[in-house]
Each structure stands twice: as C-alpha cells, then as structure tokens.
C-alpha cells in the first residue's frame, strides 16, 4: 500500500514527515515464509509514541496492517496488537510482490487531537481527526509470494475420483495406472462433484478423501521396490513432491502419515478451519 504523504490535512506520524519531532511506527523482525499451502507473516508491531499508544490502549485508535498483493486483487486490513503478531494467508491468495503496511487509525472522531512531540508549527492550531483517519504509519515490509509448486499442476493432478460401477459407501484406491484412482459409488460420486467445484471444497476434501487415500498409497509403496513404480506418472510426481517437503519416500524412516500431512500441508487444520467458517456463516455455533 502506498500512502501519499501530501494528502493529510492534520499531523501524521510517518517516515519522511516532519509533523512530529519524535516517534515512529515500524514492523521489526518481519518475515514472510512460505509453506506449500500458506504464507506465515511474522512481525513485531512497534509504536514509539506514548500518546498515540495511549489512544490505542484506551480503544480510541486501532493498530493494523494492510496486506496488499500488487499483482492481483488481494488487499485486506488485519487488526493487530502492539508487539508480536503472526498471520497466516493461504498460498492460493498471493502472487508476486506483497506489501505489508503498518498503520494506526482513529477508532472515533478525535477532537481536539493534541498528541506529544508535535512540531511547534502546530502550536495554537485546533486539530481534529475523523474516525478512520490515519494517525501514524510506517515503512512497508515487502516480500515476494512465490508458490513452491506450479499452481496449475496441483497434487490432485495425479489423483482422480472416479465413479465405481457398484453402489456402497466405502472407497477404494487403485494405483495401477498413470493416476491414482479413488473409486466411490455413483451416489457418493454425485455428492463429491457437488462440493469439488466450490472454492471451499478442496480443503475439506483434502482431509476426508485425499489424506486417507495418500496414507494408504504410501503404506503400499513402502513395501515395493521403487524401480517397480518408476513408470507410473503419479509415482514420479509424488516422489518429487515428497523430496520438496523433506520426506523422501526412499528414506529408512519414511512415515506415511507424516509424509501425507506434509504433502497436503496440515489437511486437518485447513479442513476444520474451512468447516468452522462455513458453519459460522450459516449461523452455527
């Protein structure tokens, strides 16, 4: 987020502004780390200005960061606390240059507004700041959001859910072809199709369908000579992705459950979060 310094009709604490003689806002020790399915942004929100900090403590001002992706339409304000913060954003949301802008804005009309360390030019001037007026901001923290894998070729690319001929409520996993096939009954398949096309579907299906299928596949792979699987496309992709998440399939201590979770990036956590959000939206508890 770019803040134009000439816009403010009242004193603002910010870099390269001389409205104040002392104080700053900044994100200290900021980092943006990518896991396969999410970005973790960590920082310490530092506000070095006693009277603005007092406004925050009294609930009259709100510290926040605006996270903006310059190359797509992602822009969100996240309320934060003074001090250490961590936020998690899905890897599917961010692409390219991401700017994290720290700021403090008025939570109500502030009139009169008379903070410490004002430039003497403001002596005797009546100052009012409207609700949501920016009181202070700091330099951007920037990072490049670069997904670890090609997002057009997801893990689901080597796995397909197909309709079995028979009815029933179970599922079977077939690894004898170029793709892993998860076979479900016609009724279940119809239900699957109705949720798979939604944006919320993948996180939930990842936990309830893909995770157990992958665990099953990895248990079977453990007992097979890798050379026997070399010709299967799904095995080539899975082996490469497992190396990326430091769970090589040929390592002596290969743990199917751990490997599947690493590959799917905490599928239970993502699935349960998605479900809770959906239930909340629909008026659940």
């Amino acid at each position: 987020m770019e803040i134009k310094t000439r816009s403010f009709p009242y004193p603002v604490l910010g870099p390269n502004l001389d409205d104040f003689t002392d104080g700053f806002v900044r994100l200290a020790g900021a980092s943006g780390e990518v896991a396969p399915e999410r970005y973790s942004i960590r920082f310490t929100f530092e506000l070095s200005h006693p009277s603005i900090a007092n406004l925050v403590n009294a609930g009259d001002a709100s510290p926040a960061v605006v996270v903006e992706c310059r190359q797509n339409f992602y822009r969100r304000r996240h309320k934060v606390d003074l001090g250490l913060n961590e936020m998690v954003i899905a890897a599917d949301e961010l692409h390219g240059l991401v700017q994290v802008t720290p700021l403090v804005s008025a939570a109500r009309d502030l009139a009169p507004y008379r903070p410490d360390s004002l430039n003497p030019d403001y002596d005797g001037v009546q100052i009012c700041v409207p609700r949501h007026g920016i009181l202070a901001y700091g330099p951007n923290f920037e990072f490049i959001a670069e997904p670890k894998s090609d997002r057009l070729r997801k893990i689901s690319s080597i796995m397909r859910v197909i309709q079995a001929a028979e009815s029933g409520k179970g599922m079977t996993v077939n690894i004898g072809g170029p793709r892993i096939h998860i076979e479900v009954s016609p009724d279940q398949f119809r239900l699957y199709r109705s949720i798979a096309a939604s944006r919320q579907g993948p996180a939930i299906l990842s936990a309830m369908l893909v995770l157990p299928a992958l665990v099953d596949v990895f248990h079977r792979v453990k007992g097979i000579d890798p050379e026997e699987l070399e010709d299967f496309r799904w095995f080539q992709v899975v082996r490469a992705r497992l190396r990326e998440v430091s769970q090589p399939v040929d390592a002596p201590g290969f743990d199917p459950m751990k490997a599947a979770q690493a590959l799917l990036d905490s599928p239970f956590a993502r699935g349960i979060t998605e479900l809770v959000e959906r239930l909340d939206l629909e008026g659940g508890n």
């Binding site: 190359q71 797509n72 599917d92 692409h95 997904p147 096309a197 939604s198 579907g201």
Partner: peptide, 9 residues
Amino acid sequence: QMLSPVQAS
C-alpha cells in the same frame, strides 16, 4: 469458480 486467485493470476 474452483480456480484460486493465484491460478487465476
């Protein structure tokens, strides 16, 4: 609608 913002970018 199943495309994610990154895929759609």
